[in-house]
């Protein structure tokens, strides 16, 4: 496990995080912090607990011991405020197949930020999905569906992005697009927690490797 030094007032801070699944220890006393402008890449083999870590930080999984802090406040009381600042894109894309990209994004944006249709159309265009706004998602390819999901990055005002394997089905252009988005978000003062086997080239990239201790 790699320990990362703590800053004075980190955006996200994880202290003494221990998680067991079944009888197996996934990680023990994991510590890291994430400041604005930083990208933290979580690495590790299959079953090393990358997704579990992501879900713990999101607040989806609470079978753990340890503390999470958001801007210095302990999470556990203030999940709402944290969730307003969080954008999570998991393995499951949250793209409904019968709805169109436009309809999908209208809903998922409303859960957090208000967004108008023109904004959504612009975001879809930026994701290279112009012309597909009104086709049902089942007619899109896996990579295009992933782009629909990633369009939320453009529409969100969340400071923290948590991306779980966002590159899996993207083509070369898509990969470049997403890398640019991540870099831009960091430049603008956001923070990104990302799992991928993809080699990221970013100025302030940090890595955290899970499963080394065992």
């Amino acid at each position: 496990m790699t320990e990362i030094s703590q800053d004075a007032s980190p955006l996200l801070e994880v202290r003494a995080l221990t998680c067991e699944r079944g009888e197996r220890l996934l990680f023990r006393d994991l510590e890291f912090s994430l400041d604005s402008g930083q990208v933290l890449q979580v690495k590790g083999g299959n079953g090393s607990g990358k997704t579990t870590l992501m879900r713990i930080v999101c607040g989806l999984n609470d079978s753990f011991e340890g503390e999470l802090y958001w801007r210095g406040d302990a999470l556990g009381e203030r999940w709402d405020a944290f969730h307003a600042n969080l954008l999570y894109i998991g393995h499951r894309l949250a793209v409904n197949h019968v709805l169109t990209p436009l309809e999908n994004l209208r809903w998922s944006c409303r859960l957090h930020d208000p967004a108008d249709d023109s904004g959504i159309r612009e975001a879809l265009a930026e994701m290279d999905l112009a012309g597909y706004e009104d086709s049902p998602c089942y007619s899109l390819s896996a990579g295009q569906q992933q782009r629909v999901s990633l369009a939320r990055l453009l529409l969100s005002s969340a400071a923290l992005w948590i991306l779980d394997e966002p590159f899996t089905t993207l083509d070369v252009d898509g990969v470049a697009l997403l890398e640019n988005l991540v870099a831009r978000h960091a430049r603008e003062g956001g923070a990104v927690l990302i799992t991928t086997h993809h080699k990221l080239v970013l100025p302030r990239l940090r890595t955290l490797t899970l499963g080394v201790a065992r």
């Binding site: 753990f64 011991e65 340890g66």
Partner: peptide, 8 residues
């Protein structure tokens, strides 16, 4: 949630 109640 967790952590707080360990004594219990």
């Amino acid at each position: 949630m967790s952590g707080r109640w360990q004594w219990f």
